[in-house]
Amino acid sequence: MIGIILVLVLLIYVGILSNSLNIVAMAAILTIVSIKYKNAFKKAYIYYIIALIIAILAMIFYKNRYFDLIHFGLVGYSFFLTVMLVGVFPNKSIISRSVKKNRGVFSILGFILISPHALGHLFGLTGDINLWGIAAYVIMIPLTITSFRFIRKEIDPKDWFKIHKAAYAIYLLLFVHLLIVSYETQDKIIYAVLLALYVNNKLLKELKK
């Protein structure tokens, strides 16, 4: 498994993959790490601090090409894709059990790492605004805040689950955003396939219940 992770990291580093494949590769890395190292994300606050530092650096050095993956929103989105796709796997599968444990951490990390992309576009540093993306980002804010454990404890569990149903709206908005802003046709095809697979399998899973 470590070999697969290294190959994927190399492919991302070399930069031969398109944006959509970069996202898929990063999501695969996250999934493998969750399966292989089950307690890797136990001390979540360390990851939050590291992600925050990276996000701040990316905002400051927004012209630096090393932060391109963050500025294009690919790193942040890969976290959301991991969280999203795990929802379609059977509840008893290893992937589902391993990743679902870290779902909250991944969502918060995704939000932190997608912030330079959203804020960069909002302030006109890295490009224009896309309304779908902004709408998704605005809905993400309360969901991220309520994902922190100390806030979650204060909320009625029923309300918490209802609030977090809004995540489906975010996934949809993000897919529409990606389909609109991606330049290359192959990226659009991959996003469309991912969306179709997600909707199809999620509906199948929910209807089976």
């Binding site: 309360p142 805040i145 309520t146 806030i151 204060e154």
Partner: peptide, 8 residues
């Protein structure tokens, strides 16, 4: 968002 979290 602040009001929403506060009310929650």
């Amino acid at each position: 968002v602040s009001l929403f979290i506060y009310l929650l």
